[in-house]
Write a protein that binds this DNA or RNA. Structure first.
Lengths: 114, 114
DNA sequence: ATTATATACCTCACCTGTCAAGGTATATTT
DNA sequence: AAATATACCTTGACAGGTGAGGTATATAAT
């Protein structure tokens, strides 16, 4: 594995929301978009992806509907709600703050008396 | 809570190791050092701290010994091992890579066809 | 004297997100 | 007929974080 799952934990929902900001999409496509964004380095596990969809829908950040494909596999499309956009903004800014905090915490240092 | 635990998850061990690079220390002091590093914004929960010590010791990244305080509460000191230093380097560089990856993934974008 | 606060350690049960492993179904290519 | 790609889903196990509890010493406040 190229990325530790404990380091990505907690970002799954933000990643999904980011992929819905510009328009509706569906699971498979979102995962392929993630793969492309990261130059093939990262992709969500299916179980993680779909359980995250459930959580997001339950909390009101997204809604879903079945596509009307007349050919091929059926698709469940997702829409981001206004609450979802607000949630995205919140999670994004939390990430920016946390990033700085972790950077500070991982620096070799501290522990010298006074 | 000022920092989401899912965002810090997986960094606990790296944070502890970072605090042992410059010399031995003990739980309570490490946590106070973390608090100081982050200007009072963050502190590990005790249960998190001590379970992380167990894991780190079991995996060979740290060793421990009881201090010889002749007054006050007893202290268990921790030393980072050469393996622990190597582990720190590895976790630190994983963080640097993951940070860039998450930054890419959280950007508004993707989902536009071609 | 007793209560509160600070120091300093520890454990257990629970919660939550991730993931391996399984499954269903359609369409195309070999 | 088999393999691959698309596209969805669920279940059980696992692991790290945490709330809530505990022990013990020393000092400051009531």
């Amino acid at each position: 594995m190229s990325i530790a799952s404990d380091l990505i934990r907690g970002h799954t929902e933000t990643i999904i929301l980011a992929n819905l900001l510009n328009g509706d999409s569906y699971g498979y496509k979102i995962n392929k978009a993630i793969l492309k964004k990261t130059d093939g380095k990262y992709e969500l596990k299916e179980a993680t992806l779909y359980t995250a969809f459930r959580r997001l829908e339950e909390s009101g950040s997204i809604t879903s509907y079945w596509g009307d494909e007349n050919s091929g596999a059926r698709r469940r499309y997702y829409s981001i709600t206004p609450e979802g956009r607000a949630e995205y903004d919140k999670l994004k800014s939390e990430w920016e703050k946390t990033k700085l905090l972790i950077d500070k915490l991982l620096v070799n240092g501290g522990n010298i008396d006074e």
